[in-house]
Design a protein around this nucleic acid. Structure first.
Lengths: 123, 123
DNA sequence: CCGAATCTGGACTATTATGGTCGGGTTTAA
DNA sequence: TTAAACCCGACCATAATAGTCCAGATTCGG
């Protein structure tokens, strides 16, 4: 619980690698997979998602970890509370839930943390 | 990913409920389970863990969400990076991993968020 | 003091998410 | 032009999660 998924880890490794190489460099998914001993097929999928979301095109200095997570996980955001993540109708305690509102604030603080770290700072 | 587990949600609901009732009140797990439509057996287990870690005995104003998560999940802390959570030897990329160090800082910020919210603020 | 309600805690099952694999067709670059 | 790399959907194995069942111990109200 509360771990980055392998996909996100791999994505971060790949992006950081590309950022460290400089803007002129060309990198293949194969090369990165070999270098860091990451299963190629998995990394390839991750990078496809990143490419589709134009993550790879961005300036590392302005590329935040949050954007990468969202691109890979597909969700609009990291959502701590399950009631919020799914459709609230499905939540059996949705009207008796007393912890939702306080946790939304906490949520925002978490988001801020991920918005705060850029790839540029990781090279 | 990055959701509180049901166990933690249930634990928070229960603790908040008890805190809201005031210090004199007696609450049973059964009562809380019924009230919030939580499976009793599951809540019971969660509260057992909380009781063993003396969470229930603490002053809500000083009881942080972080302490509750740790008590329920058993882990010393929320650990973002998988390499760090398990034994580092098992990590196949443990010496080529370039993202570990930057993420540790992020980790600390996350921890801070959970250390920042007390039950007292949730009633 | 007795019985009902509640708690304890292990074992077990179901469901889901994750991590990883396979393979066939397509593109790209030397 | 052909080998390497990519795309992408389908698939599988494992592990974590959520929940259930139950039998024995405990507690509490009367």
């Amino acid at each position: 619980m509360f771990q980055l998924s392998k996909k996100v880890e791999y994505g971060l490794i790949a992006i950081r690698h590309m950022a460290a190489g400089g803007p002129g460099q060309i990198h293949t998914a194969k090369e990165i997979a070999d270098r860091y001993h990451i299963p190629y097929e998995l990394l390839a999928k991750v990078m496809q998602k990143l490419a589709k979301n134009y993550i790879l095109a961005r300036n590392p200095a302005e590329l935040k970890v949050a954007a990468i997570i969202n691109a890979i996980e597909g969700k609009p955001n990291v959502t701590i509370i399950q009631c919020e993540a799914e459709s609230p109708e499905n939540c059996i305690i949705h009207d008796t839930c007393t912890i939702k509102n306080p946790l939304v604030k906490l949520q925002l603080n978490i988001n801020r943390v991920f918005e705060d770290l850029s790839i540029g700072e990781m090279v």
